[in-house]
């Protein structure tokens, strides 16, 4: 599947009235995320949160970095799709220039990036940024 863009996601989410619809949408995004090959679920690819595991693999080059992600929790997978919409297939410079905090604010995802939600969202953003920084170094 091709991932939705950040604009598509923001449009879709704005359409829903209830939290149930919003999260059903996120869950469906998570379910539609292509399966991550089991052999890639290795400790070095793990971005560990306290409550669920997140795996990250990179491909492509500095001009177009491709991210493969997976999680054992489906809501986290859906949230990862929201993150990937911002970062996938972008150049290292585009990645570093993206204002993720503003995007999260628009998504109204405060709860997900709060310190108690050990779901790795913040860690994955940090990991993606450090990959982009390393690519430019």
């Amino acid at each position: 599947m091709s991932l939705p863009t950040t604009d598509e996601i923001l449009d879709d989410l704005a359409f829903f009235d209830s939290w149930e619809e919003r999260y059903k949408y996120i869950i469906d995004l998570g379910k539609a995320l292509p399966a991550f090959p089991a052999e890639l679920q290795t400790p070095d690819r793990l971005v560990k949160g306290c409550q669920s595991n997140v795996w990250l693999e990179i491909a492509g080059d500095n001009e177009r970095i491709e991210f493969l992600v997976d999680s054992d929790a489906v809501i986290v997978k859906g949230l990862l799709v929201l993150v990937l919409a911002a970062y996938n297939n972008k150049s290292a410079q585009q990645i570093l220039a993206f204002d993720i905090d503003a995007y999260f604010k628009q998504l109204d995802l405060e709860r997900h990036i709060s310190p108690t939600r050990g779901n790795g969202l913040k860690s994955i953003v940090a990991r993606i940024n450090s990959i982009a920084k390393a690519a430019l170094a």
Partner: peptide, 21 residues
């Protein structure tokens, strides 16, 4: 077929506080 973290999150949205992990 579900992950505890997903259960905990969706319960919280309904005001039910449990622990997962």
């Amino acid at each position: 077929g579900t992950h505890p973290a997903d259960i905990g999150f969706l319960l919280d949205k309904q005001g039910i506080a449990i622990r997962t992990g």
